[in-house]
Design a protein around this nucleic acid. Structure first.
Lengths: 218, 218
DNA sequence: AACGCGCATGAGACCTCTCTCATCAGGGAA
DNA sequence: TTCCCTGATGAGAGAGGTCTCATGCGCGTT
């Protein structure tokens, strides 16, 4: 029973989150003001709160403060406006577990929710593995069979992306945006170069070229 | 009710863990062979299993495999012998959430247990804060009031250590071993140098020198 | 007041990482 | 087979990070 409380007054955003959560298999409930947020969060029947800072009535900070003052330990993810560094900090000092800056990608929010909600401990592994290839996210190292290979940050990011989508063709654009970030020069051949680096470390046949499409882990 | 199952046949180690967990406020139960481990873990009355690989009877791998095959999603932290890279990998592919290589420091194990046991969402915050100084572990950045400061990996590590022990004098040796690792040249003055870097970024008065002792965050 | 030790500081060597660029090789279509 | 386009590769520039070393400064003790 994973119930998530969404406290957000902009209907556009709350319904966006609600639909996404439903699709991901979570049940959720939306409230649009601070008072309701506090009341519902206090019932103990939710596993996590997604809390907007700019709520009418009690604002998000105040809701959070009172919630914690009442002894609640429910995980709270704060939604904050971009560029308000101060807000973010204050919110997290105030007892929030995580935050998202608006505008945000839904799957990022989902990933953070999954981390916090106790729906089984399987969601978050420290090691990603596929076949005899594995990545240790703690040490930033890869293991191939029993051979240990050190990876640079970029190499690791790229390898991680492959391991999260094994057997799947990933285009240069996808890799570029996911590993390097959205606003990276699309005319660059960095992806090619880093695929080469990974091949040198993993063995050339691990990453397959799909001509005209991209690369695939096998 | 945070119950932790310790599956470890070396009595020396299991009692060491048990005592530590008790001191940290957890209740635990010890089993010394694979069959018992599987039985107890399957009851559903534990929140996490600390599972040694080298158990008599069913070994740890087999326990884990059967546990997962039966649909259990209980978080499992594997204890593995040092230098057995292969074991580690195999274990994590087998469905473990995290691992520790023996010999290990107890507080590291404790930290990982706290991460997995959601005994309230308060234990793991994405942001560490002290006064108007905060560290975002996701972005590797610090915030001072509303000023945002980028930190290098080492700088961040050092800052994190200070924030986890605010107002406390930390010796060079402590910092060296915790941030740089145990086997680092003790004759080095790296700590001094990095304290300087942090002072340059945070403001000189944030980190206080305690002559003859070490440094302290204030 | 003087001295010695511990700390602060500046400079720089070295290394790794990241990315670009130019050139080479090879696959596939005509 | 030939040609073109895509991908592979080598080399290297530039930046940033990490650490060492030598020297300067000042606290606290005598």
């Amino acid at each position: 029973m994973s119930g998530i409380l969404i406290a957000e007054d902009e209907e556009r955003i709350s319904s966006f989150i609600e639909k996404g959560l439903r699709a991901a298999g979570y049940t959720s409930h939306v409230v649009a003001n601070g008072g309701d947020a506090l009341d519902f969060a206090s019932t103990g029947s939710f596993d996590l709160v997604v809390l907007d800072i700019g709520l009418p009535g009690l604002d998000g900070f105040e809701v959070l403060r009172r919630l914690r003052a009442a002894g609640s330990t429910i995980p709270v993810i704060i939604l904050t406006a971009r560029d308000s560094g101060t807000d973010t900090v204050a919110g997290l000092e105030g007892g929030a577990n995580d935050y998202m800056s608006k505008p945000f990608r839904f799957d990022e929010l989902l990933a953070r929710i999954r981390l916090r909600v106790k729906d089984g401990g399987l969601a978050d592994r420290v090691v990603l593995a596929y076949g005899d290839l594995s990545l240790d996210t703690r040490t930033r190292r890869a293991t191939i069979g029993s051979r240990i290979v050190d990876l640079s940050a970029r190499e690791f990011g790229l390898a991680e992306e492959f391991l999260r989508h094994p057997d799947q063709v990933l285009s240069r654009e996808q890799l570029l945006s996911r590993v390097w970030g959205f606003d990276f020069d699309p005319g660059s051949n960095v992806v090619d170069v880093y695929v080469r680096y990974l091949r040198a470390k993993f063995g050339a046949d691990r990453i397959e070229t799909v001509r005209g499409m991209g690369y695939r882990l096998r």
